[in-house]
Each structure stands twice: as C-alpha cells, then as structure tokens.
C-alpha cells in the first residue's frame, strides 16, 4: 500500500514536472519524458523489441488494407485544393492522357506517405535514437530520443524533424518542419504548420502498430487519425532501391504522365 502510494505520488510528480516543462517550452506535444528512455544499451534491453524488418499489412482482411483507414476532413481551403486537383486530373483523362505525381520522377513522397509504401521498413534502436530505414526511395528517418527539442526554426525537409520519447511500451514521435514536397494527400498542399504525432507499439510481438495523428490548421479541419499495422519479417533484409536506375515513368509540370518504352 505504501509502495503503491509512493508510485502514485511519483507518477503524479512526474506528470506535474512534465506539464511544467512542456508548458515552459511551449511544446505541448512533447512533454519531458519519464521512465526508461533508452539512453544506454542496457536500458534498451528492457524496452519493447522494436528492432527488425516489417512490412505494412495489406489487402482484404488486413487491419487497414495497407491504406489509411480514415479520410481527412479538410478546411474549405483544403477541400478547394482537392477539388481543383481532381478537376485537373479529369481534364487530363478527358484528353486521353494519364495524370501522375512527383514520385513518377523518383522524388520520394516524404512524410506521411513514406510510411504507406509497398516496401519494408527496418527499425533500429540505439541509445538516444530510433532509426527507421525505408526501402522505398532509400529513405531514412532519424528520430532523436535523447531529450533534445526540435530546432527553433527547422529547415523544411521531406521527412521533417523528428523527436521521440517513450511512454511505457509506446514510442511517441513528434514530427515538424515538413517541406512543401511532403505529400499529405495527393492534390492537397499542407502548410508549414503540419505536425505528425505517431504512437508506435508492438500490439503483438510480431506486429508494429503505428497510430498516426496529423494536425494542420492550414488545410485540416480536424486532426486526421489512422492506424497502420506492420508485420515483422524476421528473415527479410532491406534491399537497394535506386529509383533513377531504370525509371521509365515521368510526370510533367502539368501533371501529365509519360512512359518511355524505347530501349
């Protein structure tokens, strides 16, 4: 009983401290973390065994069909963008053409779509850092778990600036600083205020469940939340993926697709 009270007290104190620190930094999404934060190799041993290769489960009967299981709710500005994009697509198709997007030219999709690819990911836990290697487009996400804050004015990048902390068995990742090229959804331009919070946990020893929440006051009327489940493949390795090696697809500035089938 005394022990329980002590634990409860410690938790409460931790929460108050976390709140005070987060209030101080003005960064409510990333409160100072309590508990095991994986700051040493020994500490990592008692964290969930995330390290491994996974692939997003797809298809009928899969938990999410490999796609987002919910739809975004857009602000009027966001909805107007989507409508204009769909009209452009329709116009291209009416001419007998095909529309496409930046990835046809081998630009990666950035966050959050880089997490939806039909290729595996590898997660590596090291002291103070979680690394995600994405086979598609040979992308790497660097997720710092050493307690550092985001840079005050981060450069905008495809995968953004990610910091993470552990809440028990769940890794909470906060990502900001996303470049205009990062695709929220085809046809909708996110704002510089887009923020992505992911909660990673092993819902089963061989299933990495990622719950994603995207906020963007510029185009999203409410946070967009969805879940993806990634199946562990213990005998897979991450292969090379050089998109420019033999890319015969293309898209021009009008959004029209092409394919080169001459040798």
């Amino acid at each position: 009983m005394v022990m329980r009270d002590f634990v409860r007290g410690a938790c409460l104190l931790g929460s108050v401290l976390a709140f005070a620190l987060s209030a101080g930094s003005g960064d409510a999404a990333t409160p100072a973390a309590a508990g095991n934060q994986g700051q040493s190799w020994d500490a990592i041993k008692t964290l969930p065994a995330f390290t491994g290769v996974y692939e997003l489960a797809r298809g009928r009967g899969a938990p999410t069909d490999g796609r987002r299981d919910t739809h975004a709710v857009y602000t009027p500005a966001g909805a107007a963008q989507l409508k204009a994009y769909q009209a452009t697509q329709a116009a291209i198709r009416a001419k007998g053409g095909t529309d496409d997007k930046q990835t046809a030219n081998c630009l990666p999709p950035g966050m959050p779509q880089i997490m939806d690819q039909p290729y595996p990911i590898e997660v590596l836990l090291t002291p103070g850092k979680v690394t995600l290697i994405q086979e598609a487009y040979m992308q790497v996400r660097h997720i710092y778990t050493d307690g550092r804050p985001h840079p005050e004015d981060p450069d905008l990048t495809f995968n953004g600036d990610s910091i993470g902390h552990w809440e028990g068995d769940t890794l909470v990742i906060d990502t900001v600083g996303l470049a205009p090229e990062s695709i929220l959804e085809d046809g909708v331009q996110h704002s510089e205020k887009m923020r992505i919070v992911e909660r990673w946990r092993l819902s089963d020893p061989n299933v990495l469940e990622i719950r994603t929440r995207i906020e963007d006051p510029g185009v999203l009327a409410q946070p967009w939340e969805y879940v993806g489940r990634y199946a562990r493949h213990a005998d897979w390795h991450i292969a090379e993926y050089i998109c420019e090696q033999n890319n015969r697809n293309s898209v021009n500035e009008k959004g029209e697709a092409g394919i080169r089938i001459t040798q």
Binding site: G66, R67, R93, T98, D99, D100, K101, T103, A104, C106, D116, Q117, P118, A136, Y137, C243, N247, N249, V251, A257, I259
Partner: peptide, 8 residues
C-alpha cells in the same frame, strides 16, 4: 500504391 499511377 507504388511509385507511379497505373492509369495509363
């Protein structure tokens, strides 16, 4: 879901 549209 891959790198280009298959609409062509």
């Amino acid at each position: 879901l891959a790198h280009h549209s298959f609409a062509m």
